[in-house]
Computed example of a mutant assay.
Amino acid sequence: MTAATTLARRQGALEIKQFLRSRESVVFTMAFPVIMIFIFASIFKGDIGGGVRFTQYFVTGMIATGLLSVGFQSLAIQIPIERDRGVLKRLRGTPVPKWVYFAGKTVMVLAIGVAETALLLAVAALFFDLTLPRTADRWVTFAWVSVLGITACTLCGIAFSSVARTGRGASAVVTPVALVLQFISGVFFVFTDLPGWMQQVAALFPLKWMCQGLRAVFLPDSFAGLEPGGSWELGKVAMVLGAWCVIGLVLCLTTFRWTSRRDG
């Protein structure tokens, strides 16, 4: 094991411990999607077409939301708090390479993201008859949609962490953005039931495409014809998510701040 790998592994382990010690982060990130599944399953029990029940449709959106929560929302809130506390400033003054900090965040996001997705799949399969993929190609699709999605969310979360002026105000800035994206991206409602202008706005952001890619994995092929484009459009899903990975990386490199505004 190289020195670089050891540093990244240790920083990742530290980030995971810090995450698990925060009850608010654990409850909101891990428990919230599960709670929402139970609530919506109790309210909406009908069929939405193509042999798909609303619960099945909703579960795919909550998996995407879970990845958004741990990748975008948690980092965009955590980093400003650490910046305000002087953690980033002190780290910048040590001989530890700067990339180690981001490597640790990435390891944490991947670990929590995998755990949360596994929890959601288990709950959905046990209680809501979600059919897990039965072919290798669907699992492959699930893998690349999840990887591209969580990568885009992580990079955008790091970049968006520079928007909040203070750590205390980070949650107030980030949470509404995440909620709006969920409402317009087909998480809480069937995407094609939303107004046309709302669908067009949602198509500019990664969450809509994450949801669509995951529907291609967990819903029957008969539902593809009910999608806005008349198919799963997996090529477009890959292109948009890949573009957001590039956009997020550029924003990280050009906007990330190690010190708070009051420190200059």
Rank of each mutant, 00 (worst) to 15 (best):
L68N: 13
A203Q: 10
F32N: 10
W99V: 11
V100Q: 07
V250R: 00
T131F: 02
I184L: 13
F38P: 03
F189C: 00
K208T: 13
V70C: 11
F128V: 08
A238C: 05
A238Q: 02
L91H: 12
G242A: 10
L67E: 03
G230D: 10
D137Y: 09
V250F: 13
T154L: 13
T192R: 13
T259F: 05
R138H: 11
G104M: 12
D137I: 09
I63Q: 11
P220H: 09
A111G: 02
G61P: 03
G49P: 07
V177T: 10
G71D: 08
L120N: 05
G113Q: 10
V114G: 01
T60H: 06
R257K: 15
K105R: 15
L7T: 03
W258D: 05
I16Y: 03
T55H: 07
F160R: 01
W99H: 14
V250H: 01
R92C: 00
G186C: 05
R21T: 03
G242C: 03
R90P: 00
V187R: 11
A238D: 07
F19Q: 06
L119C: 10
S22H: 04
V237S: 09
V100C: 04
T154G: 01
V123A: 06
F32P: 03
L181N: 04
F19G: 03
Q200S: 13
I16E: 09
V180G: 05
A13P: 00
A224T: 04
S69Q: 14
A202H: 05
V140K: 06
G104H: 11
V107F: 12
P206H: 10
G229V: 01
S231F: 01
P206V: 02
V87G: 06
T135A: 11
R21N: 14
F160M: 14
I16Q: 04
R261K: 09
I150D: 05
A125I: 08
E116R: 14
A243G: 10
G12Y: 12
L120I: 15
S161D: 01
R257L: 03
A111D: 03
L214D: 02
D84G: 14
T106M: 13
V27L: 15
V180R: 00
G225Y: 02
I150Y: 04
M210H: 04
D193I: 00
G196F: 00
W258F: 14
V52G: 08
M198G: 01
E15Q: 15
P95S: 14
V180I: 15
F54E: 07
